[in-house]
Amino acid sequence: MSASLIYDLAPIGSIVVWSDGTPRPPERHKKKLAAWETRNSQGRLIRKDGPRTRGTYTTPASFTLHEGNIVSGTTIMVTISRTFGLDSNLAFKVLERPPLGSIRIFDRPGPSHELIHLAENIVAAEAWLKVHRYPLAVLEEVTADEIAVDHVEGRTAA
């Protein structure tokens, strides 16, 4: 899939893989392997942004994938996210869509919101919010309508 198809079709919370199509270098080539891993990995879709105009320049629409966290004990020290423009030349694939009935927790209302957690159900979402305390959090359930639209329109997790 192209980046624009991920932007158009993949629901927030999906696990997305990206690749440049090159083979993985051997483990002994540390620098080559590190460079390859930046262009071949996976993450959870946490945000979609439309095009923005600043002065005379317009940035293309983009989406952001959460790749992982660097933790120390139980504290997240660094969050690793990657943002891709719709003009990206990488190949993308949806590995997994959010399950029916799961709850998306966004950091704030509005178009610039970002997924901060995908809970199994409403009870788990409320328990997570009690611990993590996001005062402006917005909860959104993954509905059957969302999944049905994918099947009616011929969308798949490929």
Rank of each mutant, 00 (worst) to 15 (best):
M1R: 11
S2K: 13
A3W: 03
S4V: 13
S4H: 08
S4P: 00
S4Q: 14
S4I: 15
I6G: 10
L9C: 12
A10F: 02
P11Q: 07
I12M: 07
I12Y: 05
I15V: 08
I15F: 01
V16M: 05
W18I: 06
R24I: 08
P25D: 11
E27P: 10
E27H: 04
H29D: 15
H29K: 15
K30H: 11
K31Q: 14
A34Q: 15
A34Y: 03
A34K: 15
E37S: 13
T38A: 08
N40G: 06
S41A: 09
S41L: 02
G43K: 07
R44A: 00
R44Y: 01
L45S: 02
I46P: 04
D49S: 13
R52F: 03
R54V: 14
R54C: 05
T56P: 00
T58A: 13
T58N: 08
P60A: 13
A61F: 04
A61W: 02
T64G: 06
L65A: 04
L65R: 06
E67W: 00
I70K: 11
I70P: 00
I70N: 08
S72L: 12
G73M: 12
G73R: 11
G73L: 13
T74Q: 14
T75A: 13
I76D: 06
I80R: 12
S81C: 05
S81V: 02
S81I: 01
R82V: 05
T83E: 15
T83D: 02
T83V: 13
F84W: 03
F84R: 01
G85N: 04
L86W: 01
L86S: 04
L86Y: 00
D87C: 04
S88M: 02
N89A: 12
L90V: 02
A91F: 03
K93E: 13
V94L: 07
L95M: 12
E96V: 07
E96A: 13
R97M: 11
P98T: 09
P98H: 07
P99G: 10
G101N: 10
I103N: 01
R104D: 02
I105V: 14
I105C: 06
F106C: 08
F106A: 10
P109K: 12
G110P: 09
L115Q: 06
L115M: 09
I116F: 00
A119M: 03
E120V: 14
N121F: 02
A124T: 10
L129V: 07
H132V: 04
Y134V: 15
P135R: 04
L136S: 07
L136M: 02
V138S: 04
E140Q: 15
E141P: 06
V142Y: 03
T143K: 09
A144E: 14
A144R: 12
D145C: 00
E146K: 04
E146N: 04
I147C: 03
D150H: 09
H151Y: 10
H151W: 07
V152Y: 05
E153F: 09
E153A: 03
G154Q: 01
T156M: 08
A157P: 00
